[in-house]
Simulated scan of single mutants.
Amino acid sequence: MQTVFIAGATGYLGRHLCSEYRKRGWHVRALVRDPGRARQLDADELISAEATLPHTLKGIMDGADLVISALGITRQAEGLAYWDVDYQANLNLLDEALRAHVPHFAYIHVLNAGQMAQVPLVAAKMAFVTSLQSASIASSVIAPSGYFSDMSDFLTMARSGRVWLFGSGAHRINPIHGADLAATAANAIARGQDWLDVGGPDVFSQSDLAKAAFAAVGKPAKITRLPDWLRKVALVLLPYLTPRRIHGPAQFFLTALGLDMVGAPHGTRHLEAHFAAITGQKLH
């Protein structure tokens, strides 16, 4: 039986990766920082360690056939910054994988990173990808467009009665469900694919997303379009006006809102059905 070591196992995608590899008959070894968050995690082994502390990683990948890292932080807390986790912690994992002679390392990145290099979160991820690709190990980089879970902000705004968009709302995205992404990533890794830009089966404009959210909550669509220069001004001012834990993720999301985030379509799960399952509305 092959063994996969999954970092970031208790996150949204990590949980789906654990389930996918268990379904495929792999022995799943999951790295968990907080065992309390590992309830109902579909894994054979739970490894409690801190990826930011290299000495805690010694030996934990021995015998593994594959390492997958979905490790990263969205909100900077506990004194940790993106460079501490998205770069250095992943580099610590890579160093241990090399020491343990693991043959393959896969990393969950972000689509269109090159167009968001000025965003600290993305810059840290890009720096790690550079290190990974130059290391003496087979590698796969999976770059998703966005997750279904990321679209919950549209539902939140729709429930409040109004969705706010920047510009025309024409920028497009094809978000993907975590289970579909886990299966697609596993297939790409099995093929030895070195890079995959990936999204879900359906492409939406931001205006389409707003309308889908209103339909899911059963309210008439009320969309206010703000001038895009406000988004650009916010990107400049947020680091000066808000704490790092707020402006860090905001910089990423505001930058992504100004781009088309469309990856190669994969998966069978549809966002409208996901919204309907959350709200209890019937699809028409």
Rank of each mutant, 00 (worst) to 15 (best):
E20Q: 14
L230G: 01
G200Q: 08
T255A: 11
L226H: 03
L13C: 07
T268S: 12
R99G: 01
H101P: 02
A113S: 15
N187Y: 11
A256L: 05
A117C: 02
Q40N: 15
R24W: 02
M116G: 13
L94G: 05
P120V: 02
S131E: 15
Y147Q: 07
V28P: 07
K219S: 13
A117F: 04
C18Y: 04
G72Y: 05
A186P: 03
A127W: 06
G36D: 09
D260P: 02
D34S: 13
A51M: 07
F275S: 06
V141M: 03
Y82N: 05
V119Q: 13
A188C: 02
W26H: 08
A250F: 07
S207I: 08
H284V: 11
G280Q: 02
L71W: 06
K125R: 15
V102E: 04
H27E: 10
S19E: 12
Q76G: 02
I278E: 06
A97V: 13
L230Q: 11
K211E: 13
G11A: 03
A234H: 10
L196C: 01
S140H: 10
A221N: 10
G218C: 06
L196I: 06
L226W: 15
V110I: 11
D62M: 04
A143L: 01
Q115Y: 03
R172C: 05
L13G: 10
G192V: 14
M151D: 07
L111Y: 03
V198W: 07
T3L: 08
R231L: 15
P201R: 04
P239L: 00
P144Y: 07
T279A: 04
L93A: 08
P35Y: 02
I189E: 02
N92Q: 07
F128R: 10
D44G: 08
L271F: 06
Q133P: 00
R99K: 14
A215F: 00
D44M: 04
Q133T: 06
D260Y: 09
G114S: 09
G267W: 07
K222E: 04
L41M: 08
L226K: 03
V32N: 12
D95N: 15
F253S: 09
A89F: 03
Q281P: 00
R75C: 00
S19T: 12
L121R: 14
A64L: 08
D34Y: 03
L181Q: 08
F5P: 05
S134V: 00
I142C: 05
H266G: 00
M61I: 05
H104E: 02
